[in-house]
Design a protein around this nucleic acid. Structure first.
Lengths: 330, 330
DNA sequence: CTGAAAGCGCTAACAA
DNA sequence: TTGTTAGCGCTTTCAG
């Protein structure tokens, strides 16, 4: 059933029906007639026909690298909540960290199809940048800071710095690091810089043998820990870029009689749900993922309303959660 | 730029352009002209205008209760992958276990807007059932079995039965249970029935004091474990409906000097990533979530192609993963 | 294989 | 406040 059939059924004009669904002027009599007819027929207007004319899709595209990641799922959950309240639906693209899918989704969203885009990015390349600059719809980047764009990000550097410092303050002298892809400015590079700065500020030197780069998985953390402990000299504290990496490293430690925190203090970033049930509870930095999601969604909402061209970068702070894995007397 | 402006720019007719984007008959010359013009102008056809005529949205609605759940994220990830290969995008609705949002999304998807729906359901009520029966687009239910509809589900009963049996075979005599909402037929009811059947088959009796119902969270598992151990008689094995519940229960045990598996064997369902890094690695049943996602997506794809009215229920089997938490000599 | 033309269902401008 | 009508940008007959 289309709008004119329905209008006839209701005994009103098509414009009355259109107005009914679009907050236009309408007398109470007509309103009642229409409501009764909806009850009778179950009529629902067509979204696409509406979009053709009005250019409004009520859809927001969300591009993310991996759904089955606790942090990303949390962010996305809150994005959906905020946007849902304003009547927007989420068009989700999971790129599985596939560069090409990221680019092609950006292409897809660049023109029509959605009213706005939220990009949860890992690695941002020049191609990303040039596509982002050409977007026709408001776009928000969550999790990375990118000059000239609207971003909500975390203080990754500070988080890494202070988590590392906490271990060094407790007397650790041979700090080790298992990081993430350095092309990821936030989780990769900034967390590494934070670690390094803390080490240098403590008057220690960076040992390149004590620095590893892992993928975002437990298995990879395990492998890198194995490599870290293969040399003659052993580290006495370890900072990992993510909880998953740390969990993998801890697994290696358990299997190889390395005691935590006695032989090795260990800490990470993420404050995952499982941190406190690990065989030694894991000290970790809590980043405000849910807030990031809400903030990003609200920023997008604001952008979609006005046509302000002022770009903002919002950086969220963090909380250090101390648990057993760093509990050594200095 | 719209199709007629573009057609002029390319030097071809409007229909030629339409055919280019829809695998219609087209000579190589025209094809080349169009491709060159796309290169020049960056023209992309409008999805909504296409949809108005063709009734095809290339969108699939996915309704789920909670994104930040490892199992649901895994299922959704694979749904997206399979559907993405066929050019479908995912319209995601996270209901946060809110009954009303579930109903209203079903309403939303019932008519237009999407070409198909996948429902990852927890609790299915009569209202769900009646709405599902009225769906105008193909709909697949994942995670629950519902007669008369297309479903992909797990053998929750068998999983619970055999996981429990494994503990009883090792000599446990006082089995306890922390389950989920019994209105959830799969994770709640079937897992409970499986547990109970295993207990009875072993010649033991069910002690109602040893049966608790938790929410899907660690905290809730912790609380229920506390309650379980508050009585005079203590259980010697515990089966939990989910890994999260079990992790919470383990936390309680650690804090209260209950040794696992010596004093209490414990096991669950889900095979979460964190199971093997818990302070005692957790025996759990692996359900094939990724396969469920793929299977559900393929089923939907099939339904969207033909108009077959044959409903199928696919039940996936499981793997029992033994770890330390049940490693007691019988 | 091609192009003209008639809609798809709706919104918005306009006249009443 | 209301109804009429001209499109929105595309697909799909239909006649060539």
């Amino acid at each position: 059933m289309n709008i004119s059939e329905f209008a006839k059924e209701a005994g009103v004009s098509v414009s009355a029906v259109s107005r009914y669904f679009n907050d236009g002027y309408l007398s109470d009599d007509k309103r009642a007639l229409i409501e009764a007819a909806i009850e009778r027929t179950g009529y629902v207007p067509s979204y696409s026909a509406r979009t053709v004319r009005s250019k409004v899709t009520k859809l927001v595209g969300v591009i993310l690298p991996k759904l089955s990641s606790e942090s990303i799922a949390r962010i996305t959950e809150d994005i959906g909540e905020v946007l849902g309240e304003e009547g927007f639906e989420l068009l989700l693209v999971n790129t599985s960290n596939d560069y090409n899918r990221e680019i092609s989704s950006l292409e897809l969203f660049r023109q029509n199809r959605v009213d706005g885009v939220i990009l949860l990015a890992g690695v941002i390349t020049d191609l990303h940048r040039s596509l982002l600059a050409k977007m026709r719809v408001p776009t928000i980047i969550v999790g990375q800071k990118l000059k000239g764009f609207n971003c909500v990000c975390h203080n990754d550097l500070g988080a890494a710095y202070n988590m590392t410092k906490l271990m060094l303050d407790k007397g650790a002298k041979r700090p080790a690091f298992i990081g993430a892809n350095p092309e990821d400015m936030a989780a990769g590079k900034d967390r590494r810089i934070g670690f390094e700065k803390a080490v240098l500020d403590a008057g220690l030197t960076l040992d390149p043998k004590f620095c590893e780069i892992a993928r975002f998985s437990m298995d990879s953390g395990y492998e890198k820990a194995k490599h870290l402990f293969s040399g003659r000299e052993k580290p006495d504290c370890l900072f990992c870029a993510t909880d998953n990496i740390a969990a993998g490293a801890m697994l290696y430690c358990r299997e190889n009689g390395i005691r935590i925190p006695e032989d090795l203090m260990i800490s990470a970033v993420g404050d995952s749900r499982f941190d406190k049930v690990l065989y030694v509870s894991l000290s970790s930095v809590h980043l405000h993922y849910k807030t990031a999601g809400r903030e990003g969604a609200n920023m997008l909402l604001a952008e979609m309303k006005k046509t302000s061209e002022v770009h903002r970068i919002v950086q969220l702070e963090y909380d250090i959660i101390e648990r057993e894995s760093t509990n050594r007397i200095g």
